[in-house]
Nucleic acid binder design. Structure first.
Lengths: 346, 346
DNA sequence: CTGTTAGCGCTTTCAG
DNA sequence: CTGAAAGCGCTAACAG
């Protein structure tokens, strides 16, 4: 009996100790209330020496628990996902669970297939960040495999949901800009994201705040950025140039509605040798944290609480799994963006 | 018999079709050579209608194959990991495998524990990107669970290894800079990375090239950047200022030895209103792709082939799993960096 | 306090 | 061409 044999069974342990499989199984599941100190310590010693770990797949057959949870990501290579994935994996491992990660590449059919495969692996629950295939997830949830929805979502969900409160964050940021003297708010969003998913409320919030404060001379403009612009830095410089030239009398704040745009906007801004001032500024989402470094802290910046989101989603899921709280109402958890206020604003 | 019941068994299918479990099992494993067209089609129909998927955990008991592979990541929230994770997950799912992802946070003991847990889940193989616990992995590999090492590695490995050829990439980049007239090469690296893991060969390559071409008037300087500098953008500006002021007569190329530094260097450069020229330039690793946007393509940039690395590692691992090619020699796969040459250099 | 027994859902001989 | 039966490694009554 050596530690070399990676695939031992509890029978091996039982033989070594001189007890039955059952007793070893009891030990492994912490049911030593009715076990002699003696046997307990002997089993303990052998298991420690051999570094034995019971075969989870085998156990799951009886318990219907694999301690595996499925994570469905729309695009694992996106800059936003590492924090989400890592927080979910960490929260799972902290609770002796493991995470199976699959990436759908925004393909709805592929997602269906992958989710079915996760279930074939008997995952105890699923976290999805895709916002698609809601009917499928609802069906799964109802059949007893809890599903928690994160991040992406359009409209209502029949599931537990953890979301960023983009409306509130943007509302707050817009008010902040206006309070500090900016009157013309130029909202930038990629045309491919316009009105979609988590992006619609961002625009809505800024637009609404501007409308509500129009008596103070505030107005809202919106500019759609084509995806093709990402290939050509000149496009961003021209765009900023144009914004900067128009309405020069009005203190203007560019509000970047989406995290990937920010990098390009800040870089263009920096290359044009413009400066942050009370007359012209850049603000908005900054998922790649480029504004934090390149903008040198001069930009009012909104960040999504991705880590908190992952942790929260996992906690809710594990809660559902542990106490079969099907009957209890679904939760809808809204997380606040963090807003980083530049020193110059204070 | 409806699709509602997520957890059917092959017995249910067998009953519905009117055959035995065995026949259904045969069908599922594609062994219809000795099966009547008739039964085959009947089984096929029921399975399609019910969307039945066999319980993988149960099957694995007999086959000793879970179709699960373990992925051990040093820090899942790092900017470099998304591409690695996504390419591995994708390559796995493309081969009907799934990936269990764990993150060690660079904690060697935690890693040992997590790896043991992966094995308890009966993973068919492991990909690790940590470069630690080599002895443990070797033992696992020898006991029949193949392990592939990626990315991080110091020295030799008794395992299959997929690495970026940093030496070659840096050598090539350094020669390119010198060929284009730069004489003073200033190598920047974080002191916390100095001489460690994948970073040592980068410095070594640049240093060696400079030494070899010293007769052309080339020389090498090295500057260590403290981690504390990341909090304060001024530090980077001062540093660049200093580099720029010294030896003004010599065409100087800053060579950023590490991907996260690049963002800060490029931003400082841009804020100082310096320009890329044949007299002063920035080059090096750019994992966050900030140089590609902010530098507007003026920087000579090295990128790690992370996606290729993940795909390759997975292929090798699956190869080991499929054909029990224990006896065959271990492979050591070196992948080239991509070098992006600015237009102004051509 | 401990062991016997019967499965969990699937695969795989071995007989028909 | 198909089915009966045994067993993968573990858990959970149920007896002792």
């Amino acid at each position: 009996m050596s530690a070399d044999n990676i695939r031992m069974t509890i029978q091996d342990i039982a033989d070594a100790v001189g007890v039955s499989k059952t007793t070893v199984s009891r030990y492994l599941n912490g049911r030593y209330n009715y076990m002699s100190e003696e046997t307990r310590r002997r089993i303990e010693r052998v298991i420690r020496e051999t570094e034995f770990r019971p075969n989870k797949a085998a156990g799951s057959l009886k318990t219907a628990r694999t301690d595996l949870i499925g994570l469905v990501i729309p695009d694992a290579s996106s800059m936003m996902t590492p924090h989400l994935i890592s927080s979910i994996c960490d929260e799972c491992t902290a609770n002796r669970r493991k995470t199976i990660v699959v990436s759908t590449h925004n393909d709805e059919d592929k997602e269906r297939r992958l989710v079915k495969e996760l279930i074939a692996h008997q995952v105890d629950g699923i976290i999805t960040a895709t916002g698609r295939n809601l009917a499928l997830y609802r069906q799964i949830d109802e059949s007893g495999i809890p599903v928690v929805q994160t991040d992406y979502l359009q409209g209502n969900s029949p599931l537990d949901v953890v979301l960023v409160d983009h409306y509130k964050g943007c509302e707050r940021a817009a008010n902040y800009l206006i309070d500090h003297g900016f009157r013309r708010i130029v909202f930038l969003i990629r045309s491919s994201k316009d009105g979609y998913g988590t992006f619609a409320p961002r625009e809505e919030a800024v637009r609404t705040v501007c409308a509500a404060r129009s008596s103070e001379g505030v107005w809202f403009e919106k500019i759609l950025v084509e995806d093709s612009a990402f290939g050509d830095p000149n496009r961003f410089r021209w765009g900023l140039q144009k914004i900067n030239m128009q309405h020069r009398e009005q203190p203007t704040a560019v509000f970047v509605g989406e995290g990937l745009l920010m990098g390009h906007v800040i870089c263009a801004f920096s290359q044009m040798r413009l400066s942050f001032s009370s007359h012209f500024t850049i603000s908005g989402y900054d998922d790649t944290r480029v504004a934090a470094t390149c903008g040198a802290g001069h930009a009012l910046v909104l960040n999504q609480p991705l880590i908190q989101m992952g942790t929260m989603a996992t906690r809710i899921l594990l809660g559902r799994i542990d106490q079969n709280m099907e009957s209890k109402e679904k939760v809808r958890c809204l997380l606040d963006c963090t807003m980083t206020i530049p020193k110059s604003f204070e």
